[in-house]
């Protein structure tokens, strides 16, 4: 029974990790860019929800109605006005621009929100659900649901809409996509917008599950990167599997060895398969 409990906890936690990685994975797979600011965007999403929920007097989950469009817009504009231009000058300048963004965001949030740890508190205390001898906290169940809905929404978007198809086509072969009438710059901007929207959701989950502070971005980035490297870029099912694997490793490793395990896991994967487990 203990094993079953561990597996359940790992899967629940793993879904949150997958959520951290999915935006990064999209950007790597579609725009072919490592967004070093992804962790800071997640933290930004967490802050937005933390501030908005009590301000508007709504349930934290409802803040997504505001944070998701807001972050989408931010991503769209950043890619269109900034990162896209840097990409024309090469891979390295683009990488450094996202690095610059991460530094700016981190210190900006530090000045605005100060260094204190934050947490998104939920209105009514969360209990646990008893399933036979298994215990599942309602918080975990909620996170699990949010993550699954997000992944499903992304899958539907990518599979069944013209824009989603154009995004996948651009990831495959940008030249041919342009020859089919796709405005590549716009598609990249939309992809970045979607990635940041996913960061807004991830931020909410992170904020409800753990505490965070302005400098937490780099550890989220690393978790996201581990998930992407294991799951392959641009693949949503791969990201989910990788997130769950990672979640299991964390639960088995325990609280004190959580982060070190993630780093070591990443290095091992990178050493064995320099381009990722599912990479070409």
């Amino acid at each position: 029974m203990y094993v079953a409990q561990v597996i359940i906890n790992g899967i629940m936690l793993g879904n949150v990790y997958a959520l951290l990685g999915v935006g990064m994975s999209m950007i790597l797979g579609i725009v072919k860019l490592t967004n070093l600011a992804h962790g800071e965007f997640i933290v930004l999403g967490a802050y937005l929800s933390t501030v908005l929920a009590p301000l508007l007097g709504i349930h934290p989950i409802l803040t997504l109605l505001i944070t998701v469009p807001l972050m989408f817009l931010l991503g769209y504009l950043l890619q269109y006005l900034l990162i896209g231009r840097a990409m024309k000058k090469g891979n390295e300048p683009a990488l450094l621009v996202t690095f610059g963004l991460s530094v700016i965001l981190q210190d900006g949030m530090l000045m605005f929100f100060l260094a204190d740890s934050q947490h998104i508190s939920l209105p009514n205390g969360m209990g646990t659900i008893q399933l036979g001898s298994l215990e599942i906290s309602t918080l975990h169940l909620m996170l699990f649901a949010i993550s699954l809905v997000t992944m499903a929404a992304l899958t539907v978007f990518l599979k069944y809409t013209y824009t989603g198809k154009a995004i996948r086509a651009t990831a495959d072969d940008a030249d041919v996509a342009a020859l089919s009438g796709v405005n590549i710059g716009r598609i990249y901007a939309i992809a970045m917008g979607v990635a940041l929207a996913s960061a807004a959701v991830a931020g909410l989950c992170v904020g409800m599950k753990w505490t965070y502070d302005p400098s937490a971005g780099s550890s989220y980035l690393l978790i996201a990167f581990v998930v992407v490297v294991i799951g392959g870029m641009g693949s949503i099912p791969g990201t989910l599997v990788a997130g769950i694997l990672f979640g299991l490793a964390q639960v088995i490793g325990g609280a004190s060895y959580g982060l070190p395990i993630s780093y070591v896991l990443l290095l091992i994967v990178l050493i064995v398969r320099p381009k990722g487990l599912f990479g070409k």
Binding site: Y162, K165, A166, R168, A169, A171, D172, D173, D175, V176, A177, L179, S180, G181, V182
Partner: peptide, 22 residues
């Protein structure tokens, strides 16, 4: 384009539908 370049990971139908993106 030369060499029948396609969107390799997309289905034939989706490839064709991409043509009507315009």
């Amino acid at each position: 384009p030369q060499g029948g370049r396609c969107f390799q990971r997309m289905s034939v139908q989706d490839n064709l539908l991409m043509g009507s993106y315009v």
